[in-house]
Amino acid sequence: MKTDELVVRLSADTAPAPLSRPVPTLLMGLGAGMLVSLVIMAVWLGIRPDLADAIHTASYWMKFFYTALLAAAAFWLTERLSRPGARADRPELGLLALLAAIAVAAAFHLGVAPPGERMHLVVGSSADVCPVRILILSLPVFVCLFWALRNLAPTRLIAAGFAAGLLAGATGAWVYAFHCDESATPFVAVFYTLGIAAVGALGGAAGRFLLRW
């Protein structure tokens, strides 16, 4: 078909455009995935028994806010990357600032600790399972977010997939924090971030193929 004919045919279709609303679409995917993830966490791992005491400690809220803020920045980034031509530099800066903040906090925590305890502050007692559990708990969110993104219009597929992966990972980590009783900032900075980054990488790799339109 000639391009001129195509233009005529397309312009004849003046039906109102199916309105695309990235924020509600992504929020719906995020919410649905998070619910599934919370149920899986509660059934599979269980909520930590000392939660009532833990909420009085700073370390509990550190984990809570680190993962929640990371998710917020990743949501912002995903939303930007879900429509053509939107700028993404400010959410990127936000993500970097959060990573820098947790790194500084972890370094400070390590600096003031006696040398003999430092190793334990980093690896804690669940370093071997933490990133994998975060990855598993983030999968429902991952799937729902990709479904949501497929209804939007990302034009940088790897970047958009990576952002959605980070969002899924941070949400999975936030959910996992209801079970996890580690309290050291260095542990969170290393192993939470590792699990989240792994989901991000997975998203980048999948995005290239799953987000085409």
Partner: peptide, 22 residues
């Protein structure tokens, strides 16, 4: 098909260019 993703606060050319580049 995705004309609904155009946000009128953004430059149209940026929107078109992003799709063309993709």
């Amino acid at each position: 098909a995705r004309r609904g993703t155009y946000d009128s606060a953004q430059p149209l050319t940026a929107w078109v260019y992003a799709i063309a580049r993709y």
